[in-house]
Amino acid sequence: MTTTLLRRGLAYVFLVVLAAAILLPFVWMAISSVKADRDVFTVPIQWIPKSYHWSNFTDIWTQIPLATYLENSLLLSVVITFLQVLTGSFAAYGFAKMRFPGRDALFVGYIATIAVPWQAYMIPQYIIMDKLGLVNTRWSLILIQAFGAFGVFLMRQFYLTIPDEISEAARLDGLSEYGIWARIMLPLSKPALASLALLTFVNTWNDYMGPFIYLTDNNLWTVQIGLRSFIGQYDAQYAMIMAGSVISVVPILVVFLLGQRYFVRGIATTGLKG
């Protein structure tokens, strides 16, 4: 008995120390963001700033158009998430709850492309966008990311767990298929919708390659691109770079802490019940 207790205690201590080590870069980032530039790299490390420069957090808004970047990121993330959740759950109903010729062949098409890395087909995609004149507009990113296979897949997996008897009963009551989707499936699948929405939002917010390829106009840049370019230009303003990083992480931190369990459930669903 005492040995299991001891072992548990050891595992506990080990995990807490490990978690602290994993989070240390964030702590360092937060501390550095309020330091003076010359105090960021010191030997030995200052874990408590000598002086506090909260101005880093106010000056950065005038140094770069950070407000515009945040707005762009938010706009893209919200629109893409909305479209992905809407069309994804709609299509998933067709795949999970209706039977018609061609359905399974279509679904195989969806699944097959999930395993193809985006980098393998981004050039033809870019050519299409170029021909449509959509390069360097928000539409390019919205169109590319809103109709992904991922949302369809996640929602279908969830709908499959809802017993068919429920939709059968609704059909006998005279509800149309659209009615069943809107009045029965959507309310029942709230947790899955939350998972999909959160995962899509975070992925879009953090996406680097998409905006990097498609958005060349500074006014359209997202936070990620804007911050990266700032670093390229002012690479000695360490503290302000850290302040910008903190600002770019905070929205994600809030979203993540609010919807943590949906995240975890979403990942587990798509991962394992394939």
Binding site: F90, G94, F100
Partner: peptide, 8 residues
């Protein structure tokens, strides 16, 4: 059935 899948 197709109308569900088509938008996406």
């Amino acid at each position: 059935g197709w109308s569900f899948i088509l938008p996406n």
